[in-house]
Design a protein around this nucleic acid. Structure first.
Length: 195
DNA sequence: TATTGGATCGCC
DNA sequence: GCGATCCAATAG
């Protein structure tokens, strides 16, 4: 069943952990794309120096300040898009970054979008997911409780979750070592920088 | 208006 | 280990 707004309207770390094992789905015209979420990071509001919202509300990050259950998609490094789900109550800017998926449906389309045949590398990193699913900031702000982009609970729960500091946030001072990255232990589809 | 640096990836 | 590559935030 599809996750509703109240799932996202909770503490960001709890939402991040519970997203592991859920299915991220895009109903595209060309076919349905789906993958199991195997790696995430929590970005916990205005005090978290690694969170874009710690510098205040801007045009770029304004979706995070809105209600939970929306997609926050932004562009970085001049090359990549990042997919996040907005969490917590309206006005509190927090989100979960989706870092890796295990491809499950629409593999042929993902391979074509990535121009790559290796299933293990299709969605094993935040920039790869948006490429495989063809998501750009044109999709920023979409409602995850509607029928185009959403997350499903298919009754799978991870056997064991590994907790580590987040990737690529060395500049975040006291927050760079916060253990806010989570992945499914032993899963073959987590990002390379996890290892 | 100009400058700077970034929640990455893939190949060297 | 490094270059690619460009948007958006900040300063002036």
């Amino acid at each position: 069943m599809k996750l509703l707004r109240d799932f996202y309207d909770r503490d960001t770390i709890i939402v991040a952990k519970e997203l592991l094992g859920k299915y991220f789905v895009k109903e595209a015209k060309s076919g349905r794309l789906a993958g199991k979420i195997v790696e995430v990071e929590a970005y916990c509001g205005p005090n978290d120096l690694a969170c874009h919202a710690s510098k205040g509300k801007t045009k770029r990050n304004e979706v995070m300040f809105g209600p939970p259950g929306y997609a926050y998609i932004y562009f970085t490094y001049g090359l990549f898009h990042m997919l996040n789900f907005v969490t917590e109550k309206e006005g509190y800017p927090a989100a979960v970054l989706i870092r890796a998926l295990e491809p499950k449906e629409g593999l042929a389309i993902m391979k074509k979008n990535r121009n790559l045949g290796d299933i293990k590398n299709l969605c094993s990193g935040p920039g790869k997911i948006t490429q495989a699913f063809k998501l750009t900031r044109a999709q920023n702000g979409l409602d995850l409780t509607e029928d185009f982009l959403f997350v499903e609970d298919r009754g799978e729960k991870p056997r064991e979750i590994v907790t580590t500091p987040r990737i690529g946030v060395d500049y975040a001072k006291g927050y760079k070592d916060k253990p806010w990255r989570f992945y499914i232990k032993g899963n073959q589809f987590v990002s390379r920088r996890s290892l």
